[in-house]
Design a protein around this nucleic acid. Sequence first.
RNA 1: GGGCGAUUAGCUCAGUUGGUUAGAGUGCCACGUUGACAUCGUGGAGGUCAUUGGUUCGACUCCAAUAUCGCCCACCA
Length: 883
Amino acid sequence: MIENLAKTYDPKEFEDRIYKYWMENGFFKAEVNKEKKPFTIMMPPPNVTGNLHMGHALNNTIQDILIRWKRMEGYEALWQPGTDHASISTEAKVVEKLKKEGKSKEQLGREGFLEEAWAWTNKYGGNINNQLKKLGVSCDWDRERFTLDEGLSYAVEEVFIRLYNKGLIYRGNRIINWCPNCKTAISDAEVDHEETEGHIWHIKYPIKGEDKFITIATTRPETMLGDLAVAVNPQDDRYKDLVGKTAILPLVNREIPIIADDYVDMEFGTGAVKITPSHDPNDFEVGARHNIGQLKIMNDDATINENGGIYEGLDRYEARKRIVEDLKAQGYLVDEKKHLHSVGHCERCKTTVEPIISKQWFVKMEPLAKPALEAYREGKLNFIPERFGKIYVHWLENIKDWCISRQLWWGHRLPVYYCNDCDEIMVSREKPETCTKCGSNNLYQDPDTLDTWFSSALWPFSTLGWPEKNEDLNYFFPTDVLVTGYDIIFFWVIRMVFSSIEQMGEVPFKDVFLTGLVRDSLGRKMSKSLGNGIDPLDVINEYGADALRFTLVTGNSPGNDMRFYMERVEANRNFANKLWNAARFVLMNLDEKVAVEPIDKSSLEEEDRWIISRINTVIKEATTNLEKYEIGIAAQNIYDFIWDEYCDWYIEMVKPRLYGDNLSSKETAEKVLLYVLENILKLLHPFMPYITEEIWNHLPSREKALIISDWPTYNREDENKESERKMSFVMSAIKGIRNARQEMNIAPSRKATLIFVTQDEAVKDLIDYGRRYFVNLASADTIIIEDDKSNLGDNNLSVVLDRCEVFIPLKDLVDLDKEIERLEKEREKLEAELKRVRGKLSNEGFLKKAPEEVVAKEREKLEKYENMMDKVLQRIDSLKSSK
RNA sequence: GGGCGAUUAGCUCAGUUGGUUAGAGUGCCACGUUGACAUCGUGGAGGUCAUUGGUUCGACUCCAAUAUCGCCCACCA
């Protein structure tokens, strides 16, 4: 008897202790080891000041499963952790904090603000890592990186400079998305489009020198203050004679040309479009083609600027209202209709984005997108599930240049300097002494910082020390798999791919595993504003990290959203408890000396061979499924085996041996129980690392920690189909007997004689051999085997099996009518089956074209069912006639 | 306007290349405290796999339409 486990599973008692044990022993560490193959995963860096939510819990659980499994398989497994500075989001939080203190960014100045931001980062920066630790993640914490680290910042500058020198980064005056609340430019990817109910107004512009008008349509009338032309389609007969003439902008009285451009859709609106080149991307293009100049009419906070005349100072929506009123009053408003259209919002603060002309820095995307597309087409990059490949391709094929400058302070400042005297641009890591063009020493650095995603795009190699050439980079890069949410493909996945190809010459990872969203029980997105978020830490606290992890990876296939139910967590906690108690049972019955002895195969009994064969198959199935990233199915394989086969059948079958007098048989049972338990713990470890390690630590046979033990492998010689067939007969007999007894309401405590009637010698042997199964599991006291049933009376329950009938004499308890009714139900079931099988076998096409083995299987079924049907009918007749 | 996903037991979901008596968890009903576990055991009820066609000897699985729901992308003022 061995030191016992606690009576009930209590994850709180050991989870933290086990995590500490792993950390103290350095099991998560990875280092260059030429003896081993590397396996690398880069953890998507969470926002440094963020908190763990279910999305993190999901993708980190998946990563941890993969890394633990590969570590056990003998790979040098590196899981690289770290955090992201999240420029716009962190800056907003700090600004808000300052606001509460009555301070502002501008008051503090850049230096002062950055001090505040670092203080904030240091205060909240550790939170998410501690939360991840609760989940059990086995990443190499010694390698933790932060996107604003010195090394990573160096990499960012390096890439910027390289791309600039290659002409892939440029500064340009173009239409960008401006967030008037965050007061910065944002990239296209950071704009969420939302269908919004607005209005469309038709406004007539007088034609100069004529008593005519041209009517345009717009959804943003305030932008007319910046109109520099009216455009029509050159094919449009309605307006042919107006092209080349001049329109007079109402309210403003500016003279603007009427131009012809293919961009205009004759079918839409009035077929005439106002052109506002500084406030609309299409108008910008049209304007450029016709060389009509620029006129910006808005400030950074979306109020009208000095170019807006009497509307100066008004907010954009106030200006819209006033302009519509004025147009109406002056008779220019022709029509006003409700109109559904898509409006861009700032992904972070939800403010309506204003397209606006601005001087910003851009990455030229086409030359970078091309090799990224090729890599995918050449199969160097796989998506799981595959369908996301299409999204990747579509985005890259339609990509536009990436606006990377942000009017923020928290982030990587552009390594760009300007000459105050001659406006020369100098890109360099350090501030140049003098202007490279005019020699002036009157230089200043660009105040802008880079898009956060510019630095995270480099994550797979910057974290390994790039641009320095080192062993780590050589060994661990490229990485093996990236696990992240599908909502981040554009922001991050694609940018890592083209950045890696550009800087490293190869893709950063082979596989991209995309997770779905974790939703609440009603299918809604978990969000702060709805207050429907479930805190993973609360769940861990109540049910343990293992139960949470199991819940997140089961009952769901890759890329699909899932609903989160506490009932499911509870069920998985119950599973952990089941395993806990099974282990407790094994240990209670295990002799310490026996535990370390090898199994003598010749002493194995039928159920031993069966369970060994079964675990062997499960090892194969689970491993294959993991290889296919079918994590949920792998988990299900293991779960079913543990609960149904190991606990419900094997442990129950083996009990008489453990309590019996045959010492050798008892010891064999102990060894097999332990052997299977060891393999169960290994298989389940990646999914439920805590409970498995805790139980493992109680096994007398353990040599080293479970986390670094060897992943089990399939052995051909352990597979035993013969034992599986035999056991499946025994189990179906037991089930049949239990079923009949319960249907007839005979309590399990009422022991009975079982009379097996069969002429099949093999079946006889098996029943004889397996007496104890029936005694223990089918409430039998005596077991009799007969050739012939002719002298058995009718006062029996009868169970029809394959090649065998069981009679249970329970004279006083058996109600004949009820028994007939029960057998009639059996008959109906068999009838349906027979009909199906006969149908198949009488179909000539089936016989001709189906594979032989499939036909043979159906023939076997037919024989079996016919045989069983005969017996059931005989029995029914016999009972009826004896009434 | 394009693209994608979902539709399977009351509920939430699996079902891996077409051949299973279509599964699980949960819920429901009945019975059960034999020393691993009531966070349990045993048995049961419950599904014409959204609809309609097609391919095939054979379709939950492949193809095409339809319907409903959801998501993503897109410059139509």
